[in-house]
Design a protein around this nucleic acid. Structure first.
Lengths: 123, 123
DNA sequence: CAGGATCCTATCCGATACTG
DNA sequence: CAGTATCGGATAGGATCCTG
């Protein structure tokens, strides 16, 4: 009876929200905003990508972290995974509806930061 | 001369973006999406808060991490810090214009995840 | 009240080697 | 190609104690 009530605190308390440790959304937020999660999601927004394409797209990511990040995002229902049983095997990743939904504010976040930084550097 | 060019790759390359390690926005993104950064920013959206209010608002955060997160966000220009030289001293934090700008997609991200999770749990 | 300093541990994450 | 398994260094982050 503790989870999911943090939004009510704004009215009950002094006007600020309380973020519970066991808030279910917190795990997903942590995964989405993990070191590599945000870049995977943003990369997949333009088009579905194969494993090696993602690895080359996201500079600095290791195969281990890419695999781990993808596994988490698939578990969370943000990314789907399709295996083509060819030789060599092809595995493609793409965004689910949930993933596309989440990808929007993520891309917006990235855009706003980029815009602010470039305008600061230019002017 | 290397940073800020990753957005061009979508046209030059195979249609997906490349995220450079030295992209200047990446540092800010990392700070904003750090373990506690997102919660601090969202908490400050409703109103300015003092140190202890933030600590109580964000369940599970330690004083060390709150101080460290706030320092980083102030350095990035997302949060301002005002010291009242009273006894005991009062320190208030709030969002700068940049911080409010970034806070929007952040709150939207949190809202969408919360909505999706609660609707999934309810029906 | 608002933190800095210190210590210590959990985990993150890269490198390497190996598998289907 | 698309991973898994293991190891070890780096770092994030909590607990505690101390200061203005």
């Amino acid at each position: 009876m503790v989870g999911g009530s943090q939004l009510m605190q704004a009215e009950a308390g002094e006007g600020y929200e309380v973020f519970h440790t066991d808030c279910p959304a917190r795990d997903v937020v942590d995964h989405v905003t993990s070191r590599w999660g945000i870049w995977v999601l943003i990369s997949l927004r333009s088009k579905d990508l194969r494993f090696y394409e993602l690895r080359e797209s996201i500079q600095g990511i290791s195969e281990k972290m890419l695999a781990q990040t993808l596994r988490t995002l698939v578990e969370d229902g943000l990314v789907w995974r399709r295996v083509e049983p060819t030789t060599p095997p092809q595995v493609t990743y793409g965004l689910t509806e949930f993933g596309r939904d989440i990808g929007e504010p993520l891309a917006e976040l990235f855009d706003r930061i980029t815009r602010r930084l470039s305008s600061r550097g230019a002017g």
